[in-house]
């Protein structure tokens, strides 16, 4: 092959490469890369509506004196610190039970538990709102079996409103995470379990000493993605609380606060952008952790 022809081939290879990825790269540059830097830029400006002035780190200072921001931050952290471990544990336990071939109707159970993933966040939030009303079906059932003496104010008491949000997210996402574990469990050699069983290792120990360590990579992956998801919590709280994050800001999340700052009141684009960078930083830290842990493995 002559050099000229080889060069021609290389050029057409390169040209084709760029042609295939070009549209996507251009769109990502316009709708992702530009806005994320634009947000950073905006975070140095303060003011209402289009009247914005350079403010340096003024917005960052404002963050630390803003009680609403601080409660949104606290709530968001509480949500993922409490909810993610509960959900991951539940999903793992469900997956290990459903991985047991001896049980019947496994497919049916699996489908049922996975079903919540099909609903939109809005639809299920609205359903939960109706189920958890003061005289609603949940309170009525709890009263009937004697678990509680008086109805719980799920939507009116700050503590219970948080519990409701955590219950809701757990309902929606446990089956989703379970599917990841089930897929990973299919790759585990069954003879390991058989050997442990013959040696008299009890079921809970097989779960804690065999299943969990072998699934560590998947557990890490799902934990980080769930946490990132919870950091961006919006649809549920918006629809459970008519967009208020109430009662008294007890379910206000960072994303909801950003939305309120931008679209509910006279827009404070600059300050809202600063709040959004708090999420960016937290997500970046978590993703870094994930990459770091993944590299550690291989």
């Amino acid at each position: 092959m002559t050099i000229a022809r080889a060069n021609g081939l290389k050029r057409s290879y390169d040209l084709n490469g760029w042609l295939f990825i070009g549209p996507s790269v251009a769109l990502i540059a316009i709708y992702l890369v530009y806005p994320i830097f634009r947000s950073l830029y905006l975070s140095f400006y303060a003011g209402k509506g289009m009247m914005m002035k350079f403010a340096g780190f003024g917005n960052v200072v404002r963050l630390w004196h803003d009680p609403v921001f601080l409660s949104a931050l606290t709530n968001t952290v509480v949500f993922f610190v409490v909810q993610v471990p509960i959900m991951i544990t539940l999903a793992l336990m469900l997956a290990s039970v459903l991985n047991n071939d001896r049980l019947k109707f496994i497919g049916l159970f699996r489908t049922a538990i996975f079903l919540p993933c099909v609903t939109s966040l809005v639809a299920y939030s609205v359903l939960f709102k109706s189920m958890f009303s003061a005289d609603g079906v949940v309170n009525a059932s709890l009263l009937a079996v004697g678990l509680i003496g008086t109805p719980i104010g799920w939507l009116t008491e700050p503590f219970w409103a948080k519990v409701l949000v955590i219950l809701s997210i757990t309902w929606r996402w446990t089956g989703y995470n379970m599917i990841f574990y089930l897929a990973a469990m299919q790759n585990i050699d069954r003879s390991v379990y058989e050997a442990a069983r013959i040696d008299g290792v009890p079921a809970w120990a097989r779960f804690a000493r065999l299943t969990v360590p072998m699934l560590k990579p998947v557990i890490l992956f799902t934990t980080i993605t769930s946490t990132i998801g919870t950091l961006q919590l919006f649809d549920e709280v918006y629809n459970l609380t008519e967009g208020k994050g109430g009662p008294s800001d007890s379910t206000l999340t960072l994303s909801l606060y950003i939305y309120n700052l931008t679209f509910r009141y006279m827009p404070s684009f600059g300050y809202a952008a600063t709040v959004s960078y708090v999420i960016v930083i937290m997500v970046a830290l978590l993703s870094f952790l994930q990459f770091y842990a993944a590299r550690d493995r291989s």
Binding site: P35, S39, S255, I258, T262, A273, S276, Y277, V283
Partner: peptide
């Protein structure tokens, strides 16, 4: 870009 949260994009996008 997978880790860019939408909350940080929505204001400039809007």
């Amino acid at each position: 870009t997978l880790m860019v949260p939408f909350a940080a994009l929505m204001i400039p996008l809007f």
